[in-house]
């Protein structure tokens, strides 16, 4: 995997998320959106180390994970627009993405709740002796739930082929880590205490994330054991929605600026020739334009079908 490709994948996701933020005020995407801007590296770095048949799961902030795993852009946007052509037929919206062809099995927004489900998918991989792993993306907040502890424990004792990817962006909504977790205990410590092999990556560094994820995947497959990766990262926009919210007082503008200035994607982009960059971005823009056109022009689910899918 070329480093350049990793950065371009990140750029694509950032541009997609920005395009959602820009159009959000048109009031046509009528559902909460938890955007991933600033957090593209974990999604891209991890997913680049996966194969298509590896299964991925996520939570409320799942756009980047879905896209990095190869989820269809047009169906994601159509879902956010509440359309029948959406990946969940408009029933779920932004917080309920899935693309089974891409191995993105599902994301739901009850924090922590998809973690055991990913472990269960990994259990089936193990029982069926498939050459694949299951990956669950979770946040620092999710580590505080009981269900995650229970999942780590079970994955450890039964040697489940699952990769726990914990994106530590320092906040759960407006609550900093300091009011939620002890300062002298890291997220990796939690997994390690369950007897699980852990990796801590460099902050938001896609190359390091990719390298460690690749190693983790090999370990999972070769030794049939779970692995836990902690990735320090940072969300740029408000917890939910298209705006910046540093002004409301739960984090400082200085912290935000410091994180933004350290952004490796922006640094990478600066190294590209203007001409090349323009070529790349205009290609992505075209893709985005077409996908939005599809989403906007698709029809809404027929109201008569509202009761469909309650039972199989």
């Amino acid at each position: 995997m070329m480093l350049k490709q990793l950065y371009l994948d990140m750029l694509r996701i950032r541009m997609i998320e920005q395009s959602i933020a820009e159009r959000y005020n048109e009031q046509e995407m009528r559902c909460p959106v938890h955007l991933s801007i600033g957090q593209e590296a974990p999604a891209v770095g991890v997913c680049a180390a996966l194969t298509k048949t590896d299964r991925a799961f996520s939570g409320h902030r799942s756009h980047a994970h879905y896209l990095a795993k190869g989820g269809n852009l047009a169906s994601m946007l159509a879902e956010i627009y509440g359309k029948e052509t959406g990946c969940s037929k408009g029933r779920g919206g932004s917080m309920h993405l899935c693309d089974l062809d891409a191995g993105f099995v599902g994301a739901t927004p009850i924090v922590g709740s998809t973690v055991p489900i990913a472990v269960g998918a990994a259990l089936s991989i193990k029982l069926k002796k498939e050459e694949a792993i299951s990956v669950i993306f979770l946040g620092d907040g999710a580590m505080e739930t009981g269900v995650v502890q229970e999942s780590l424990n079970f994955a450890s004792i039964r040697k489940i082929p699952v990769l726990f990817v914990c994106e530590n962006n320092l906040y759960s909504v407006y609550s900093p880590l300091s009011v939620r977790q002890p300062i002298n205990r890291s997220l990796c410590d939690i997994a390690a205490a369950h007897g699980i092999k852990t990796f801590l990556t460099k902050e938001n560094d896609v190359e390091d994330i990719y390298t460690k994820s690749k190693k983790a995947r090999q370990l999972i497959l070769n030794k049939q054991q779970p692995v836990f990766i902690e990735i320090p990262t940072y969300r740029w926009l408000e917890h939910c929605g298209p705006n910046f919210d540093n002004d409301i007082g739960y984090r400082t503008q200085e912290e935000y600026i410091e994180k933004r200035e350290a952004d490796l994607l922006e640094k990478y982009i600066e190294t590209l020739e203007i001409k090349e960059l323009n070529k790349i971005t205009s290609k992505i823009e075209d893709e985005i334009k077409i996908a939005f056109k599809f989403a906007k022009s698709s029809s809404f689910p027929n109201s008569k079908s509202a009761g469909d899918f309650v039972y199989a």
Partner: peptide
């Protein structure tokens, strides 16, 4: 409320 979960799409939630 009818006997199905809350749908997200407005075309469905309008009748909900």
């Amino acid at each position: 409320l009818p006997d199905y979960p809350t749908p997200t799409s407005t075309s469905l939630s309008d009748g909900y």
